[in-house]
């Protein structure tokens, strides 16, 4: 296996090197997330016009939709890293799977709560057992299950393998969440923004939405790097490089 992996990638995967790079990446993507988030909030709350049917209540879209995209995006990435970790036993892939789960759970929780607030105003109910809502709730339980399973093992690597298996099994839920609004007759509206086709949203509303999407992506990268660093330092705490970092304080 080591034959076809390029040298720079192997260097990057070396724990001390990765720890250093991830620290820089965390700082810069964190700053980018804050900057993009402020621009997006300004656009969402002040510049975007009021919707002619939903009034200002529609402004929930600017936090609800990017969070919902992230909840699926992070799970798909976790599926990829789980597969890498299980097949090639790449330590960093295992770390990425475990570190992603709390962030994904956070975005799923935001999606459910903001959706509930929006639903109360527009549908007249906080919650309904509709296909989209139920499958998103199952997604939250999958994230929590991955976290719980990982922590139920004493050996971190065994825990990561078990959690990776659960992640792969849970992948079946991703297309169900995405296509639920097409497969079943649901209360939830269909997609407004389509990657491959016409989008049904005005440009003045679209740009804050896309900026917020980029902000959430940058946030995820920053949070992921922070969590992976911590986990790596803990797993390698007996090694010389980790001890030096612990002794120096950074």
């Amino acid at each position: 296996m080591s034959v076809w992996i390029p040298l720079w990638l192997r260097k990057l995967a070396a724990p001390p090197h990765f720890y250093c790079i991830a620290g820089k990446l965390r700082r810069w993507s964190g700053r980018l997330a804050v900057l993009l988030g402020i621009i997006a909030l300004y656009g969402a709350l002040l510049l975007a016009p009021t919707d002619y049917r939903q009034g200002d209540a529609y402004r929930i879209i600017f936090v609800h939709v990017p969070s919902a995209w992230m909840s699926l995006f992070i799970y798909i990435l976790m599926g990829g890293t789980a597969l890498l970790g299980l097949i090639w036993r790449i330590k960093l892939a295992e770390l990425a799977t475990i570190a992603s789960a709390p962030i994904g759970a956070a975005f799923t929780l935001i999606t459910l709560i903001t959706g509930s607030l929006w639903g109360k105003r527009m549908w007249g109910t906080w919650w309904t057992w509709d296909a989209r809502l139920s499958s998103e709730l199952i997604l939250l339980f999958l994230y929590l299950g991955v976290i719980a399973l990982y922590h139920s093992f004493c050996n971190a690597r065994q825990g990561a393998r078990a959690a990776s298996f659960l992640t792969l099994i849970g992948l079946i839920n991703v297309p169900i969440v995405h296509f639920s609004v097409q497969w079943w007759h649901t209360l939830h509206q269909g997609s407004t923004i389509n990657l491959f086709g016409p989008s049904y949203i005005s440009a003045s509303m679209l740009w804050p939405l896309l900026t917020m999407t980029l902000a959430t992506k940058a946030y995820y990268l920053a949070s992921l790097c922070g969590r992976m660093r911590k986990q790596l330092l803990w797993q390698e705490r007996g090694k010389h490089w980790a001890r030096r970092i612990i002794a120096m304080g950074e």
């Binding site: 200002d56 209540a57 929930i60 709560i113 903001t114 607030l117 929006w118 105003r121």
Partner: peptide
Amino acid sequence: GGYAGYVWPAYGVFLLV
């Protein structure tokens, strides 16, 4: 526009979480 009770909590939850 009268939706303050829904819009602000949604943004608050997003930032808080």
